[in-house]
C-alpha cells in the first residue's frame, strides 16, 4: 500500500513545490533590490531637480498623464509638481508590482522590459483600505 501511495504523494509534493517556485520567489531579493534602486534613483533625481532623469524613470502611462494634466512636456510638468521630501528609504514590497516606502513618501513601481518604472509617487496612505492618494500617477 505504502509503496503505491508514496509516489503519488511525492508527485503532489513536487507539484506544490513547483507552484511555489514558479511564483518567482527564487529571485525575489534581486527583484526587490531592483525596485528599491529604481525608486531611490527617481527620488534622487527629483531631489536634485534633474527633471529629465526623473522623467526617464516614469512608466509611460504615468508620464502621459502628467503631460496631459499639465499640458506641458514631462520635465517642465514634473518641475511644477509638489513632491515632498521622501526622507530615508524604509522597505520595499514586491508582488509582481512593487511598493517602495520612504519615511515621508510611498512610490509604486511596475516592471517593464526596460526595468522597473515608477507608476505613482507622492503617495500618502488613506484611512481604511482605500487606495493611497498620489500626487503623480497613471490613468
Amino acid at each position: 500500500m505504502a509503496r503505491r501511495i508514496l509516489p503519488i504523494l511525492a508527485a503532489f509534493g513536487a507539484a506544490a513545490l513547483a507552484l511555489v517556485g514558479v511564483c518567482g520567489c527564487s529571485d525575489l531579493s534581486e527583484l526587490r533590490d531592483g525596485a528599491a534602486a529604481a525608486a531611490a534613483h527617481f527620488r534622487q533625481a527629483v531631489q536634485a531637480q534633474d527633471w529629465a532623469a526623473a522623467c526617464e524613470a516614469l512608466a509611460p502611462a504615468s508620464r502621459d498623464e502628467l503631460e496631459q494634466n499639465n499640458k506641458a512636456p514631462c520635465p517642465q510638468a514634473l518641475g511644477g509638481q509638489e513632491l515632498p521630501d521622501a526622507g530615508r528609504a524604509r522597505h520595499t514590497d514586491v508582488h509582481g508590482e512593487a511598493m517602495a516606502v520612504f519615511a515621508q513618501d510611498t512610490v509604486f513601481l511596475a516592471h517593464f522590459p526596460s526595468g522597473w518604472k515608477v507608476t505613482a509617487a507622492g503617495c500618502q496612505q488613506q484611512p481604511g483600505d482605500r487606495p493611497y492618494r498620489c500626487a503623480l500617477k497613471g490613468r
Binding site: L19, D93, H95, G96, C134
Partner: peptide, 18 residues
C-alpha cells in the same frame, strides 16, 4: 499561497498596500 501573491499584485496595481 498563490492567491495572496495574485491578490497583492492586484492591490499594488490599485495603489493599495499588500
Amino acid at each position: 499561497i498563490t492567491g495572496v501573491a495574485a491578490y497583492n499584485e492586484q492591490r499594488l496595481r490599485d495603489l493599495q498596500a499588500p
